[in-house]
Amino acid sequence: MTDKTIDFYFDFGSPAAYLAATQLPHIAADTGATLAWKPMLLGGVFQATGNHSPADIKSKGPYMNADLKRFAKRYGVPFAHNPHFPINTLLLMRGATGVQMQHPERFASYADAVFQAIWVDGLNMNDPATVGGVLQAAGFDAAELVALASAQATKDQLKATTQEAVTRGVFGAPTMFVGDDMFWGQDRLDFVREALA
């Protein structure tokens, strides 16, 4: 019997994770699967696995940018390369973890707001004031979120999920699992759908 859960390991700093996030809820709905969002620190994964961002490779970065635009067009979703890339997502990923732990019903709103700010609006989410404004506009109390992100339980959970990802063989974002089958990259979503069929 097929496992009807999609484990979605992601980091807001990955444009490919943004594209995957625009499609996975539809795939889950179409197949009757549960989408389990797994916030992880991509920097931690890179450090543990010796991997690097494609943007670090001179000839690969421009290709990846063009490819991401092609996929955004195919999916019918907005996408713009962020001029402030790379984004330090530590606080954002802690925020995602904290919201998931304490206010799971608001997690989708949080994730949508952050992905939109980075990969559609091109905002500088390295700037705490910008982050505060984005989250305030999405209906969050920025001060409460900072407290939530700073809580030791939140930090521990994010570290644990990042380690869990590495243990399962994750080396980049996005990575999806259906049962034990791993799929890396937003260009592998057809295989995720097939695994759920």
Rank of each mutant, 00 (worst) to 15 (best):
L148M: 13
P83K: 11
H103W: 14
P128W: 06
M64W: 11
L92D: 06
L158G: 03
K155S: 10
S150I: 07
A80R: 14
G133N: 08
T97C: 08
A149Y: 03
L158F: 00
L68R: 15
H103I: 05
D67G: 02
L123F: 12
P78W: 09
N124P: 05
A151W: 06
A72Y: 08
K159L: 13
G76E: 12
A96M: 03
D67R: 10
H84L: 10
R168Q: 06
G172Y: 07
A66F: 10
F140H: 00
R106S: 11
P78Y: 08
A142S: 11
T161F: 05
W119E: 07
F107T: 04
S150Q: 13
D67F: 09
I87E: 03
L135W: 01
A142H: 09
G169L: 00
F85M: 09
N65G: 15
Y75D: 14
A117E: 03
K159S: 12
N124S: 10
T97R: 04
A160Q: 10
E105I: 05
Q152M: 09
K159M: 12
G132C: 10
P62S: 13
G139D: 06
N82T: 04
Q102G: 08
F107P: 01
Y110C: 00
A113H: 04
N88C: 12
H84V: 07
L91K: 13
Q116Y: 14
A138T: 03
F171Q: 03
V170R: 02
E164H: 09
D121R: 13
G139S: 08
D156N: 02
V166E: 01
T97W: 02
P83W: 12
L90Y: 07
A137V: 02
V120W: 13
R94V: 09
G95I: 02
Y63H: 11
T130L: 13
M101H: 10
S150N: 14
W119M: 11
R106D: 10
P128E: 07
V170I: 04
T161A: 03
A108T: 12
S109K: 10
N65P: 07
E105G: 04
I87D: 03
N88K: 15
R106F: 08
Q152C: 03
F85R: 07
P78A: 05
A117M: 03
G95Q: 01
A143E: 13
H103T: 12
A165R: 03
A137C: 05
F115H: 08
P78R: 08
V114K: 05
A151T: 08
G169S: 06
V134E: 09
V99R: 01
